[in-house]
Simulated scan of single mutants.
Amino acid sequence: MTEILQIPKLVTVFGGSGFVGRHVVRALAKRGYQVRVACRRPDLAGFLQPLGNVGQIQVMQANLRVRWSVDQAVQDAHHVINLVGILYESGRQRFPAVQDFGARAVAEAARAVGADLTHVSALGADLNSESNYARTKALGEAAVLETVADAVVYRPSIVFGPEDQFFNRFANLARYSPVLPLIGGGHTKFQPVYVGDVAEAVARSVDGKVQGGKIYELGGPQVLTFRQCMEEMLQVIDRKRYLAPVPWSLAYLQAAVLGLLPKPLLTKDQVTLLRSDNVVSAEAESERRTFAALDIRPETVGAIIPSYLWRFRQAGQFTRIGAV
């Protein structure tokens, strides 16, 4: 009797070469999916190939601002994932183009080929926000659900993991500076979420285990203030640094200067974002639009960051924590 070979589902991942993207690609590859990574610089995405079997992961060029490239990237796909987002504007990479119109372009392309859609937004997305980042994230969500009614939309809080730009950035700063700034006094609350848990949530939506047409808010098991995040990080890298509160007015002045750099350390829009807490809403909790609905138990900050922040200790992995 002749065996019928089952061809693995093809999943197109926009932004698959980014921080969250590489973990999503790994989770999909482990499940046996054929993965097509669509990104602006495929020449810099070679590191993704070892995450799967030979030929399982393919990388191609696509830009959300160029519609034909988006349409080409979703051809024959069974599921489409959009992870693309920017933290600051540069050149033609503007918030509306990438996070609003770009999100709609991906949704329309997915609908055209009959593919399911998972869209990763951000906690704090709000149509009425003073932050351009948060407002365009909300516009992107609305465009996605308007175009593909049963799409799965995720809003993660600040995402941490080996390649993050949060704990790594401040841990690196702590190597050279005796002072770490606490913008607005460090009172802003976060619910840091491990990148591996976000990737698993995305993969489960591809598995068909997540109800579509909803916005899920993804936060870790701990609510920490900015100050507490810095204290946790300093304890892990075994360094003592002065945590200096920075008033909002001064933070905006600093951001006006730092925002002029090619890769800004801080922008005025980011300062505006920090004025609002970044935690899962009570409404999402009561309606079970959280990790609980996905049957995922998220990891704590303390359980994960020692595995990658050890390199910022004075003697690296050989440092005796607490030693004088």
Score class of each variant (00 low, 15 high):
residue 7 I to T: 13
residue 7 I to F: 02
residue 12 T to C: 10
residue 18 G to W: 03
residue 22 R to W: 02
residue 29 A to E: 01
residue 32 G to L: 11
residue 35 V to S: 02
residue 38 A to P: 03
residue 39 C to A: 12
residue 40 R to T: 08
residue 43 D to C: 06
residue 44 L to F: 07
residue 45 A to F: 02
residue 48 L to E: 03
residue 51 L to T: 04
residue 54 V to I: 12
residue 54 V to F: 12
residue 59 V to A: 05
residue 67 R to W: 10
residue 70 V to I: 11
residue 76 D to G: 07
residue 90 S to Q: 15
residue 99 Q to T: 05
residue 100 D to H: 15
residue 104 R to K: 15
residue 106 V to W: 00
residue 108 E to M: 11
residue 117 L to E: 01
residue 118 T to P: 01
residue 119 H to V: 06
residue 137 K to Y: 05
residue 141 E to P: 03
residue 143 A to G: 05
residue 146 E to Y: 04
residue 152 V to E: 02
residue 152 V to K: 00
residue 155 R to Y: 07
residue 160 F to Y: 15
residue 163 E to F: 06
residue 165 Q to S: 11
residue 166 F to D: 01
residue 169 R to H: 11
residue 175 R to N: 12
residue 177 S to Y: 11
residue 178 P to E: 12
residue 181 P to V: 07
residue 189 K to W: 09
residue 190 F to N: 01
residue 195 V to Q: 01
residue 213 G to R: 11
residue 213 G to Y: 09
residue 217 E to S: 12
residue 220 G to H: 03
residue 221 P to M: 11
residue 222 Q to M: 09
residue 225 T to L: 06
residue 226 F to V: 05
residue 226 F to Y: 14
residue 229 C to H: 00
residue 229 C to T: 06
residue 229 C to D: 00
residue 231 E to Y: 07
residue 238 D to G: 10
residue 241 R to I: 05
residue 241 R to D: 05
residue 255 A to D: 04
residue 263 K to V: 14
residue 266 L to W: 01
residue 268 K to V: 05
residue 271 V to N: 01
residue 272 T to V: 15
residue 275 R to V: 06
residue 280 V to R: 03
residue 286 S to W: 07
residue 289 R to N: 13
residue 298 P to T: 10
residue 300 T to G: 08
residue 301 V to D: 00
residue 306 P to H: 10
residue 314 Q to N: 14
residue 318 F to E: 13
residue 319 T to W: 04
residue 322 G to R: 12
